[in-house]
Simulated scan of single mutants.
Amino acid sequence: MPKHQRDRIAELIAPLRVEPGRRVRLPRDFDPGYTGDLVHKRDGAELLERGVALLADHQARLAAEGTRGVLVVLQALDAGGKDGTIRHVMSGVNPQGVRVHSFKVPSAEERAHDYLWRYSLRLPARGEIAIFNRSHYEEVLVVRVHDPEAPASHWRDRFRAINNWEHHVAASGFHIVKLFLNLSPEEQRRRLLARIDEPAKNWKFSASDLAERQHWDDYQRAYADLLSHTSTDWAPWHVIPADQKWFARIAAAAVIADTLMAMDPRYPTLDRKARRDLKQFRGALEDK
């Protein structure tokens, strides 16, 4: 990839990264309506297309290499655009090399284990990209918002446990990309209204969306706290401005593509004997 194109991607995502140790305050530190130097959707169309092509190329190399993997953690409030982001960003990749896991309310079996158990079961294999559509961070978001009596030390312990778990995953050869789709309350309101007003979207609406919306400020504080405590050198967070869906998709694709380019997976090369064998096989096929 030409250096100027890689520099362009790095420039685009740099303001979105949560530097380890930074104290985050939402929405002051990250504007949900930010679009960088891209003003209109058409401005980013080529950039998104290029990002999707990069993902497809590097995912094919990752699968062929078969020694490392990628975990993409995707978090957002209701109507944040997680499903659309996955659909558009991963549109060009081979579906055999990508696994998407959407985590719902824990089952009885899952509740019988520690809270990270079910997420460990869904980690990618080597050569794969796994996407967590909601993730282990729900354990310090929804659970926290609905358990205001728990002491602050409880959540600090969970942050520490999550950081240690992710460090183990990263040290085992799996790169972690963490994306928070940052939505404004007004844009969420518009999207929820669209789910009511547009028949094709009625199925998406749930009364629980309105109930959770009442806890908006609590969620903002919970997200700010987790971003502050769990953005690490081995698993940094990127806060994706989500008010403009087209920009959110460009930014998400850019972060994942940047990670894969840094990994630089390679197609396996054959040793001398294997290359000699291939010549013999080729000769046998030509004789037929």
Rank of each mutant, 00 (worst) to 15 (best):
K82N: 04
R118E: 04
D7T: 12
G33K: 08
V24E: 00
H40A: 15
E49I: 05
V52H: 00
D83P: 03
G51S: 00
G80A: 04
A63P: 08
V89M: 06
Y115I: 05
V72P: 04
R23F: 07
V98M: 06
D31V: 09
V72N: 04
R6W: 12
H88Q: 12
Q75K: 01
R68I: 03
V52P: 00
D78W: 01
A76E: 04
V100N: 11
L26V: 03
E109Y: 12
W117H: 09
I9E: 13
T85M: 09
R8P: 02
A112E: 14
V89R: 09
A79T: 14
T85K: 03
A10D: 14
V70I: 15
D43M: 05
R17W: 09
P95G: 08
G33F: 01
D7R: 14
S107D: 11
T85E: 07
L116W: 06
H58C: 07
P95N: 09
R22W: 09
M90W: 07
S107W: 11
G51D: 00
L116D: 10
Q96D: 12
G80L: 08
V100G: 05
V89E: 08
E109R: 08
G44A: 12
L12G: 07
R118I: 11
T35Q: 14
D29V: 13
L48N: 00
A60N: 10
V24F: 06
H88L: 12
S107E: 09
G44V: 01
H40Y: 09
G80H: 04
S107K: 06
A64T: 00
F103K: 07
L47N: 00
A112F: 07
D29N: 10
R118G: 07
R8Q: 14
A60T: 13
R22H: 12
A45R: 14
S107G: 13
F30S: 08
R61F: 01
D29W: 07
G80I: 12
Y115Q: 02
A53G: 11
A108D: 14
G92C: 03
R42G: 00
A53E: 14
A10Q: 15
V39Y: 06
G33C: 02
G69L: 04
R17V: 14
D37Y: 07
R118T: 11
V105I: 12
A108H: 10
R111M: 15
V105L: 10
A53R: 15
A64H: 01
V24N: 01
Y34D: 02
V70H: 05
A108G: 04
V98P: 02
V70E: 10
G21E: 13
R50C: 07
R25P: 01
M90S: 03
T35E: 05
R50G: 06
I13E: 02
E46M: 06
E46Q: 11
L12H: 07
G21R: 11
G84W: 02
H58D: 14
